[in-house]
């Protein structure tokens, strides 16, 4: 009888412990939501050195400046290349839309005006980097079905591993698997899978730190596994919450000298 009592108590405790741990493990969706909504400032300016590395290890370097600002729960991003000379003054404006594809404009100095980027172009390489136009925009959590598939350490950081599958198929990827740091909620690694569910690209954060009170990625590498080509990005300068003017995120500014 005593053994039975002890057995019931143990079973109850195990059940309780299990329920407790189940309750504590957040869902994939809530992890992605928390990562998406983490504090990244109301606005930001960053200067980035982008280096293209081919499989023979030849390097081509570029400098770009990125301005980003929240408008309610939507974000607008303005990007401008300042080096080298052949792409200097090439500019890109992305306006996030809630229930539609982002509206994107590209300004090429040779054309003298901005041009809309069509949906199919979002699957293509952004100015010959390993990022596509789709990669250049924030992906809203509700566009994917998320599932927590593991919790593991990545380079000494305890991470959630979340699988995200597009709900409507309107993506160049069949799925993404993201490693999200439990402390900062930064995405430290993403594996991208093509429509044949083959891993095609890997994004790896090489360094991150707190800047002006905000967790900030300072070095990241995107590798195209098929082409054995990499794009390295190194943060040269960052400023948060500078009060960027709304006017910066307009087609007018995109076309301005």
């Amino acid at each position: 009888m005593r053994n039975l009592f002890v057995g019931v108590i143990i079973a109850f405790c195990v059940l309780l412990a299990y329920r407790q741990s189940f309750a504590e493990a957040p869902s994939g969706a809530s992890i992605i939501e928390k990562s998406f909504n983490r504090d990244d400032g109301k606005d930001s300016y960053s200067k980035i050195e982008m280096t293209l590395v081919d499989k023979q290890n030849n390097l081509r370097s570029r400098i770009l400046e990125i301005y980003s600002k929240d408008f309610g729960d939507l974000t607008k991003t303005f990007l401008e290349f300042s080096k080298p000379a052949d792409i200097k003054d090439t500019r890109f404006l992305s306006i996030e839309e809630k229930n539609a594809d982002n509206t994107q404009y590209l300004y090429l100095p040779a054309l003298g005006r901005a041009r809309r980027i069509v949906s199919s172009q979002k699957n293509l390489a952004f100015v010959n980097t390993d990022y596509t136009y789709e990669d250049m925009q924030r992906r809203r959590p509700e566009k994917d079905a998320h599932k927590l598939i593991a919790e593991e350490s990545l380079d000494g950081h305890s991470c959630f591993v979340v699988e995200s599958i597009p709900r409507d198929g309107a993506s160049q990827y069949s799925k993404r698997i993201s490693w999200i740091d439990k402390e900062s909620y930064l995405v430290l690694r993403v594996d991208f899978y093509d429509k044949k569910v083959q891993k095609t690209k890997e994004l790896r954060v090489k360094n991150f730190e707190i800047k002006q009170g905000i967790w900030t990625i300072t070095q990241v590498e995107m590798e195209n596994l098929k082409d054995q080509h990499k794009t390295l990005m190194k943060l040269l300068e960052i400023n948060y919450n500078q009060g960027l003017v709304d006017d910066l995120f307009t087609v007018y500014r995109l076309e301005k000298q």
Binding site: R115, R116, I117, V118, S119, S120
Partner: peptide, 11 residues
């Protein structure tokens, strides 16, 4: 005028 329809830019 300029817009995007599917995979095409129309202007």
């Amino acid at each position: 005028w300029e817009t995007v329809i599917g995979a095409f830019g129309i202007r």
